[in-house]
């Protein structure tokens, strides 16, 4: 569903993403792990068609993100790190707007359904500016799901919300596994271990390890993913 081949992005002199390749299949939750500035967001921005890659290619459902940008974009649901909201709209109006823009046939119905799924239906007439932080996060998720895209890309979806809400958001993401391909970025390692079927550890724009969380742990004889991560990232520093 997601196919990335030798993808690179250069900002001036700095190579933010350096020839990374990976694939993600339907029914799979793939975690992008890495320290801040490793290139997670840049990778996601290329996959969502926000910015073109410097070299290499990426495809969503077989559609190249540059050549068939609209086809690729219509198959992606995206939640950027900072939840993009229109404070002056109602919750329902906000989700309906994105549904319409992505060509959903019955936008109002789709919006109501997704709000119910994310337990926001009792807030459908509330202005976005009056929502709590956790609700805003879920609303961001709602806009990413409303057009029922095969691929869902979430940039740090559990950042800055309380533990109870983190659990809820994680459960929602885990439930997406059945019918979607999910790519999430995080630097919370226990989170990756809990919900991801496979993790890709990137550091300084390069993939330094990938595999099932359990396999990675075994291979490196580590107690948990955290020590795998630290080993990989530090090895890179020494080299």
């Amino acid at each position: 569903m997601i196919e990335v081949k030798d993808l690179s992005k250069r900002y001036g002199d700095r190579l933010a993403v350096n020839a990374i390749s990976f694939k993600a299949q339907p029914g799979e939750i793939v975690g992008l792990l890495g320290p801040n500035g490793a290139g997670k967001t840049t990778t996601m921005r290329m996959l969502t068609g926000f910015m073109p890659p410097t070299s290499g290619s990426a495809a969503i459902g077989g559609f190249d993100v540059v050549e068939d940008s609209f086809e690729a974009r219509s198959r992606v649901g995206y939640l950027p790190e900072r939840v993009p909201l229109y404070p002056d709209m109602t919750t329902e109006g906000y989700v309906t707007f994105w549904a319409k823009l992505r060509g959903v046939r019955q936008p109002a119905q789709a919006a109501r359904a997704v709000l119910e799924r994310l337990h926001l239906d009792d807030r459908s007439k509330t202005l976005v500016r009056n929502l709590s932080k956790g609700m805003r996060q879920r609303l961001g998720l709602a806009q990413a799901l409303v057009h029922n895209p095969p691929v869902i890309i979430l940039d740090e979806p559990t950042i800055g919300i309380d533990p109870q809400q983190v659990i809820e958001v994680r459960e929602t993401i885990a439930a997406l596994r059945q019918s979607h391909t999910v790519l999430i970025s995080t630097h919370i390692l226990s989170e990756a271990e809990q919900i991801c079927d496979r993790v890709i550890i990137i550091n300084q724009g390069k993939i330094v390890a990938q595999g099932k969380p359990g396999d990675l742990r075994k291979k490196l004889n580590a107690a948990n993913l955290e020590s795998v991560f630290l080993q990989m990232v530090n090895k890179d520093k020494r080299a």
């Binding site: 219509s74 995206y78 950027p80 993009p84 229109y86 823009l101 992505r102």
Partner: peptide, 13 residues
């Protein structure tokens, strides 16, 4: 400023 431009630019529009 609100970051919604990023979503608009990743919509099929």
């Amino acid at each position: 400023r609100e970051g919604t431009l990023e979503l608009l630019l990743t919509s099929p529009t």
